Computed example of a mutant assay.
Amino acid sequence: MFGDIMGMMGKLKETQKKVQETKERLNTVLIDEQSSDGLLKVTLTANREIKSIHIDDSLLQDKEQLEDYLVLTLNKAIEKATNVNETELAAVAKEGMPNIPGMDAFMK
């Protein structure tokens, strides 16, 4: 009985380490997004850290338009980054879960 618990604790620590390594790796995964007309381009990491923003000069003439572009484009990029982040972390966490019959239904 205690062997099983110790084995599970070891697997939990290993999973925690893999999750941390995955989070660090996601800092290097870049997500690019742009407005539909290409006038605004943003790049962020899969951990949702903004790395760059490129704004076409034509957008600098209209503050409201630029704000709208930023909101829309950043939200799309954040959504993509969040999907990548959650998928990667869920895969690592699932690997570390003990094999309990019926648990697959809860992991979907």
Rank of each mutant, 00 (worst) to 15 (best):
M1C: 08
M1D: 10
G3W: 03
M6A: 12
G7C: 01
G7L: 02
M8R: 04
M9T: 05
G10C: 06
K13L: 10
K13Q: 09
K13P: 05
K13V: 08
E14H: 08
T15I: 01
T15P: 04
Q16H: 10
V19N: 01
T22K: 15
E24W: 10
R25N: 15
R25S: 15
N27H: 12
N27A: 15
I31M: 04
D32S: 14
D32C: 13
E33H: 05
E33D: 08
E33F: 13
Q34T: 13
Q34M: 14
Q34N: 13
S35E: 02
S36Q: 14
S36A: 15
L39Q: 07
K41T: 11
K41G: 10
T43K: 08
L44E: 08
T45G: 05
T45A: 02
T45E: 00
R48N: 15
R48F: 11
E49H: 15
E49Y: 14
E49G: 14
E49Q: 14
I50C: 10
K51I: 13
I53A: 02
H54V: 12
H54D: 11
I55G: 04
D57G: 09
S58T: 15
L59H: 02
Q61N: 11
K63G: 00
E64G: 02
E64I: 00
L66K: 02
Y69W: 06
V71T: 04
L72T: 12
L74N: 01
N75Y: 04
A77L: 06
A77D: 08
I78D: 00
I78K: 09
E79D: 09
A81E: 00
T82E: 11
T82W: 12
T82R: 14
N83D: 13
V84L: 06
N85K: 13
T87K: 15
L89E: 01
L89K: 07
A90D: 04
A91R: 12
A91M: 07
K94W: 06
K94V: 10
E95H: 05
E95S: 07
G96C: 04
G96R: 10
G96I: 09
M97G: 04
M97S: 08
M97A: 09
P98A: 07
I100K: 09
I100H: 02
I100E: 00
G102I: 05
D104E: 11
F106C: 03
F106K: 13
F106M: 12
M107E: 01
K108E: 05
